[in-house]
Amino acid sequence: MTTLAYLIPVALFLGALGLVGFLWALMSGQYEDLDGAAERILIDRDDKADQL
């Protein structure tokens, strides 16, 4: 029972961390262009065209 007292909060905290991380990624526009993101890793970044 005592182990539960800290294991459950720990589990929930880690889960919530993942959730917040996902929501943050969503807010910051990382899901706006999934196809583009997949292709962009092929582009050499020798200029700052990504600044927009």
Binding site: L34, G36, I43, A49
Partner: peptide, 22 residues
Amino acid sequence: IQTIETALGKLGRVEGARVNLS
């Protein structure tokens, strides 16, 4: 993506161009 962004970025008065592939 690269062709378009580079070519548009080189135009005068253009601050930046970004392609959304989706």
